[in-house]
Every structure is written in structure tokens, then in C-alpha cells.
Design a protein around this nucleic acid. Structure first.
Lengths: 116, 116
DNA sequence: ACCACAATTGAATAATTGTTCAACTATTGT
DNA sequence: ACAATAGTTGAACAATTATTCAATTGTGGT
């Protein structure tokens, strides 16, 4: 018997049990919400949008967003770990670019939603 | 002169100034990241996914997700404020359903991305 | 009128998170 | 070898947030 965290009985057990098998693996849902979590920050959205226009190095992005290099670098790391951007070192500079073109599609769909 | 928060000069001023006018209004970007913030939580993603299958009341959702009614209600409120779900009172129960069919499209696109 | 049940609410707590600051690494130019 | 610049890193701090708990509202049934 699994331990129950819930504090009530279902009103419509039939509906609940019909829906239950249609739910994706928890595993997958967490990956999904982690993905949205990465997008759910104003700075990171700006970075993604900027990099969609052109690859840039950290200093350029810092000037564009009017932030410190450190703050930008921290957020780029989050995007890097999430595999949304890619870093390439050229001399003293590190150039970042988008790693995944799904992202552009999702950003555009979400913008449609927000603008309606 | 605007106050500078940044701590460096741009390496490629030409690129920065070419990209700058292409950036959407900050305003819009914040709406966008707020939208993703709402999606960026495991519980809320589960709720959205479940409601895509069938409308349900709070008790049903609590049983399905194995959580307390209170926790579910709190998260439903977040989704309600974000206009992603709609509540309808029927007798003693409150039935929730998806309010926006863009959401399904975005969830599916994001799932494609995560599954690749 | 009363009881049982469904849902909401607000305060409290614990956990997570974004930015700052200072220290550090790595590379170029002299 | 040295100074200057680009970027990264970790700790600290403030702010935000998800869940729990207890109290409350509102509805239906008796």
C-alpha cells in the first residue's frame, strides 16, 4: 500500500482512474517543468532572445542587458547546463550561441499566447 | 545619461547596437517569463496535463496527484490568476478546466524538445 | 438549525533562486 | 615576466516560493 499524502476521497473515482493512466511519467513531467523553469526568468529570456539575433560574448551581452559580467555569466551557465546555449572560446572571449532551434519555436508560440 | 549597471565595455559595439533595436519591449519579455514561471513547477504541470484530459474538481485532483486539497487549491489559484484554467462551481464542488488551448500546443512542443 | 463535506485562505516554515562581491583562472600584448 | 582584460566561480544576502497547518466560508442533506 502506497503512503497517502492526500486528505480526502475522490468525488468521481471513475474520472480519476480514467485520467490516471494517461498521465506521462513523473520523470518526464519533471524534465518538462525544469525546462520551463529555465525559461521562467527575465534575464534568461533576454539572453535567449539576443542570442537568436547573433552570437555574442559575455561582455557584449552584459552591455546589451545592462548587467554585470558576473550576473550574465551565472545565467549563461544555467542555460548551458540546460543545453539551450553553447559556448565557444575564441582568444580572450567566449562566444555564446543558441544550441537548439526548438527554443525559437517555443518562444514564438508563447509570445503569441501572451500577446493575444 | 542612464545609470549603468554593467561593469565593462562591449567587445563588438556594432553587433550590440545591431541587436538592441530587435529586442522586444521589456514589458513583453516580463510577461513572457512570468508565463513560463507558471509552467515551471511540477505540480502545476501535472494539473494542466490532467485537466487536458478531463475537467475535475479539487478533491479529484488531490487524489490523482496524491496531495492535500489545500496544496492543490493554492496551485490552482496560481493557474487561475494566470488565466490558464477556469473554475466553475457546481453544488458543493468546484470544477476546473483548461481555459486556453494554446497551452496544450506549447506543452506538446516542449515535450518534443525534452524527449529528443 | 445543525452537521458533514468541499474548497479557500493566511500565516509559518523550509527550500530555492538571482544578484552582488571578491577572488580566481586564462589569455593577449608589451 | 608583467600588466591588462575576459570570464568564471563560490559564498553571502535578499527575495521569492511551495507546502503544511489551522481556521474559515459556503453548500447540501437531514
Amino acid at each position: 500500500m502506497e503512503n497517502r499524502r492526500t486528505d480526502c476521497e475522490a468525488i468521481n473515482i471513475d474520472i480519476v482512474e480514467k485520467v490516471r493512466p494517461k498521465m506521462p511519467e513523473m520523470n518526464l513531467l519533471y524534465e518538462l517543468s525544469d525546462f520551463f523553469k529555465v525559461m521562467g526568468d527575465g534575464t534568461r529570456i533576454q539572453l535567449l532572445w539576443a542570442l537568436e539575433e547573433s552570437e555574442m560574448c559575455v561582455g557584449d551581452l552584459a552591455v546589451l542587458l545592462n548587467m554585470t559580467k558576473s550576473a550574465v555569466s551565472h545565467q549563461l551557465k544555467v542555460l548551458r547546463v540546460a543545453k539551450l546555449v553553447r559556448a565557444e572560446k575564441k582568444g580572450k572571449n567566449v562566444y555564446y550561441s543558441l544550441n537548439d532551434h526548438h527554443v525559437k519555436l517555443i518562444l514564438e508560440k508563447a509570445l503569441e499566447h501572451v500577446c493575444e
